[in-house]
Design a binder for these strands. Structure first.
Length: 594
RNA sequence: GGCCUCGUAGUUCAACUGGAUAGAAUAUCAGAUUUCGGCUCUGAGGGUUGGAGGUUCGAAUCCUCUCGAGGUCACCA
């Protein structure tokens, strides 16, 4: 039983013994700095069960706790708040218990519990990844790690949108203008190369539209009749018919893109356990649409299109199959979801990390899956995040304001390098080691910047001003970690040494630090329940602030006694380890020096 | 227009899901090192939580209205 559970149990006991009443739950919060105490029980909610003056009730509970709970040293009541002081012995015991644990706060995944599949990143294969994907990927990866740490088995996955008119556009432009250019011949990254042809298509398309308009067509007609567009549509039909030449081209160009994506994912530091391709799941979706037609979940209209009527659920009618029988996005999403539960029978739920412009889509998708009779439909969650805006507004590919993912990571590393050259302690590092480090810091800055904000909120990203390295930032936390490592290198103390130190009096800063450590398991759980890396980020920042304050006030290596010195070194070690673990949950690595 | 988010110091974000005098960072100003990494620490100023009502012991949080920003309502993805 941890401290809070012990207290909760005893507060309930107190209510039972003193007032002969049953209390369902006890509300705790951290005691505010201006009052004495470590943890606070809020008395007000108890008034529903126990009639009386909140101050008196608080006093009586406090008295009971002091008498019955070893860890409770003293208490005071301010208005309806019972502030409890905890003994140093408790904190020392607690710390002795965790200091050797490399994974303190993490639960090991239980095989009894159903696994979760987390989808993040759902790129189209016609252009490179950009800033928006970066938020998606960083967020999804972190949530996966947090869910794992909270005791769930997790499969990380990706859905690759590898078919459709957009790919055909790139393919056609390459055929027309490409002169057999390949990533090898040009030295371009595959996804960049394919993206260039998508842009070329759009340029040519515009030229043709102008041409048709000058020949007397309306703009609307011209957009429909441009020869290059018609040809792309032909190509799509050929693809669906399995035309060998088109399929071969499609495979080749998609292959280039995957190589490019892999490089970007690797650079950002994320990975996947399983990949899904829409070209392989849309057929299963169609099967289940046919199935749903039989069972009456869907209805067929006169023109042959198939719909799901959701008006009784307060939504609209939604199309699941076109009149020509081809699949829409919804069709393949149904297929993909079902395919996943077939491939991984232990999966009991899924998390979709997708931007908030698709909230309605997922609302409908989950409802349809439920109507199809899958009980896991209740465990589907759309992890919806806000858009990333630039100072100029939305990113628009046509206006060339898209921030490329690779460029962004490079720029962050470069900025980190410039700052480190000035301030770093990197004597003896080779140029290669320095590059690795700069990347670590640059990525840390970027990931932290994105993750510390509640996913739902939109982010304003200013590439020019880049990202701060001071204050509540990734590098600030990395710096604190590196500084602790420096102390540990000098200390020569084994972290396994145990002391009989239970009678020791704690310095207030030591207390605060241990208190902060004690919160970590609860924070992980909370972050998992809320799918919120921001809670981990904010916790880590608080921990680091406490440490820096401790560091400033208390000498670690210059402690008065050996026992104190060992204790403080071990405390610093635990803090460093927790920083490392917490940052691991955010997908950020920490440096030994910087 | 219907539905869904969001609105908090100049700026970027918090607020333990209804709890105490709304906290940090940044910027500004004033301080701290015979000490283990000063990318540090301590302090000051800065707020009618967009606005108006309501619910109750208690509201940034819940309800109603209103203003503002964004999203979504395709045989697109």
């Amino acid at each position: 039983m941890n401290l809070q559970e012990t207290l909760s149990h005893n507060v309930k006991q107190a209510i039972k013994v003193v007032f002969d009443a049953e209390l369902q739950s006890v509300e705790f919060q951290a005691t505010r700095k201006e009052f004495a105490g470590d943890i606070t029980v809020v008395v007000f909610p108890m008034l529903r069960v126990v009639k009386g003056n909140p101050v008196q009730i608080g006093e009586q509970i406090g008295q009971y706790l002091v008498e019955h709970v070893e860890e409770v040293k003293a208490f005071n009541v301010v208005k309806g708040f019972l502030n409890i002081e905890i003994s140093d012995a408790h904190y020392i015991n607690f710390f002795n218990g965790i200091k050797g644990q490399s994974q303190f706060g993490f639960k090991t995944p239980s095989s009894k519990e159903k696994a979760v599949m987390v989808e993040y990143s759902s790129p189209n294969t016609n252009k490179p990844l950009h800033l928006g994907h970066v938020r998606n990927v960083i967020l999804g990866y972190s949530v996966s790690e947090i869910l794992k740490a909270s005791g769930k088995n997790v499969y990380k996955t990706q859905i690759i949108n590898d078919r459709g008119i957009h790919i055909c556009k790139s393919m056609l432009a390459w055929k027309r203008f490409g002169n057999e250019e390949t990533p090898q011949s040009s030295g371009l990254k595959g996804d960049k190369l394919v993206g260039n042809y998508y842009v070329k298509f759009d340029k040519e398309y515009k030229v043709e539209i102008q041409q048709l308009i000058s020949e007397g067509q309306t703009e609307e007609d011209a957009k429909k009749n441009a020869p290059i567009l018609l040809e792309a549509q032909q190509m799509l039909l050929k693809w669906e018919a399995g035309d060998e030449e088109v399929v071969a081209l499609w495979k080749m160009m998609n292959g280039w893109v995957y190589e490019g994506f892999d490089a970007t994912y690797k650079s950002i530091g994320v990975d996947f356990d399983k990949l899904y391709y829409e070209s392989q799941t849309y057929l299963l979706g169609k099967e289940f649409v046919a199935e749903g037609l039989k069972t009456g979940v869907f209805i067929k209209k006169e023109d042959g299109s198939v719909w799901c009527d959701l008006t009784e659920d307060g939504l609209d009618e939604k199309i699941v199959l076109r009149s020509d029988g081809t699949a829409v996005y919804m069709t393949q999403d149904i297929g993909t979801a079902i395919q996943r539960t077939k491939d991984f029978p232990d999966v009991g739920g899924m998390v979709y990390t997708v931007g908030n412009e698709q909230e309605y889509h997922f609302q409908v998708l989950f409802l349809i899956i439920k109507k199809l009779g899958f009980e896991w439909a209740d465990n589907l969650y759309h992890l919806s995040y806000g858009m990333v805006d630039l100072p100029s507004g939305k990113m628009k590919s046509r206006e060339g304001t898209v921030v490329d993912a690779d460029d962004l990571v490079d720029e962050m590393a470069q900025t980190a390098g410039e700052i480190s050259e000035e301030l770093g302690k990197l004597d003896g590092y080779s140029p290669e080691e320095k590059q690795v480090l700069y990347k670590k810091i640059g990525l840390g800055a970027l990931k932290y910047f994105i993750l510390k904000v509640d996913p739902r909120k939109r982010i304003l990203f200013d590439p020019k001003e880049s990202i701060d390295f001071q204050g509540n930032t990734g590098p600030f936390i990395q710096y604190t970690y590196a500084r602790i490592q420096s102390i540990l290198r000098k200390s020569n103390i084994e972290d396994t040494v145990t002391l009989n130190n239970v009678d020791m009096a704690l310095h207030p800063k030591e207390r605060e630090l241990i208190k902060q450590l004690e919160l970590f398991p609860e924070v992980i759980q909370n972050a998992a329940d809320n799918y919120s890396p921001a809670l981990i980020a904010n916790y880590t920042y608080e921990l680091v602030r406490e440490f820096n304050s401790f560091y400033q006030n208390v000498s670690i290596l210059g402690a008065d006694t050996d026992a104190e010195k060992v204790f403080r070194v071990q405390l610093a070690q635990s803090v460093a380890n927790t920083i490392k673990n917490a940052f691991g949950l955010l997908g950020i690595s920490v440096p030994e020096r910087m």
